[in-house]
Amino acid sequence: MKKAVIVGGGTGGHIIPAIVVALELEKKGYMLKWIGSIKSKNLEEKIIHNYFSKIEIYHIPSGKLRRKKNIFLTIFNIKNILDIFQILFGTIYSIFILIKQKPNFVFSKGGFVSVPVAFACKILKIRFYTHESDYTVGLANKINLYFSKKFFYSFKDTIKMLPQNKSVFSSNPVRSDFFENNIDIINCIVDDNIKNFLERRKEKLPLILVLGGSLGSLKINEIILKILPQLCNEYYIIHQTGDNKKLEFSNPRYFQISFISKDVSNCMKLSSIIISRSGANLVFEIVATGKPAIFIPLKSASRGEQVSNANYFALKSPLYSVLDEDEIDSNKLLNEIKRLTAKSDFNRYDKSEKVEFDEIKIRAEKIIVDTIEEDLSIK
Rank of each mutant, 00 (worst) to 15 (best):
residue 278 S to D: 07
residue 186 I to M: 06
residue 343 K to H: 12
residue 175 R to D: 06
residue 231 L to Y: 07
residue 106 V to F: 00
residue 99 I to V: 08
residue 156 K to D: 05
residue 28 K to G: 12
residue 251 N to E: 02
residue 267 C to F: 06
residue 115 V to N: 03
residue 51 Y to K: 10
residue 112 F to M: 06
residue 187 N to D: 15
residue 351 K to E: 13
residue 336 E to D: 09
residue 201 R to Q: 09
residue 212 G to S: 06
residue 212 G to Y: 01
residue 269 K to H: 13
residue 216 G to M: 11
residue 342 A to S: 15
residue 216 G to A: 11
residue 373 E to T: 08
residue 2 K to T: 10
residue 271 S to N: 06
residue 230 Q to K: 15
residue 165 N to K: 15
residue 160 K to R: 15
residue 103 P to G: 09
residue 367 I to S: 02
residue 32 L to H: 01
residue 138 G to H: 09
residue 214 S to W: 09
residue 155 F to W: 01
residue 87 I to A: 08
residue 8 G to F: 02
residue 225 L to I: 10
residue 279 G to I: 11
residue 287 V to P: 00
residue 318 P to C: 04
residue 110 G to I: 06
residue 63 G to Q: 06
residue 334 L to D: 02
residue 78 I to H: 07
residue 92 I to Y: 14
residue 66 R to K: 15
residue 157 D to H: 12
residue 345 D to N: 15
residue 280 A to D: 03
residue 79 K to Q: 05
residue 231 L to H: 08
residue 325 E to S: 10
residue 130 T to K: 00
residue 136 T to W: 02
residue 63 G to T: 03
residue 226 K to D: 04
residue 268 M to F: 10
residue 305 E to W: 10
residue 205 L to F: 04
residue 43 L to V: 14
residue 302 S to L: 15
residue 25 L to W: 06
residue 243 D to Q: 15
residue 76 F to M: 08
residue 334 L to V: 03
residue 71 I to K: 03
residue 8 G to N: 06
residue 221 N to Q: 11
residue 119 F to A: 02
residue 297 P to G: 09
residue 240 Q to W: 07
residue 197 F to H: 01
residue 148 S to F: 10
residue 233 N to K: 15
residue 62 S to G: 13
residue 345 D to W: 09
residue 93 Y to S: 05
residue 308 S to N: 14
residue 248 E to F: 12
residue 185 I to W: 12
residue 191 D to M: 04
residue 362 I to Y: 05
residue 271 S to C: 10
residue 215 L to W: 13
residue 79 K to D: 03
residue 186 I to G: 08
residue 241 T to G: 09
residue 196 N to T: 10
residue 155 F to K: 04
residue 230 Q to Y: 15
residue 207 L to I: 11
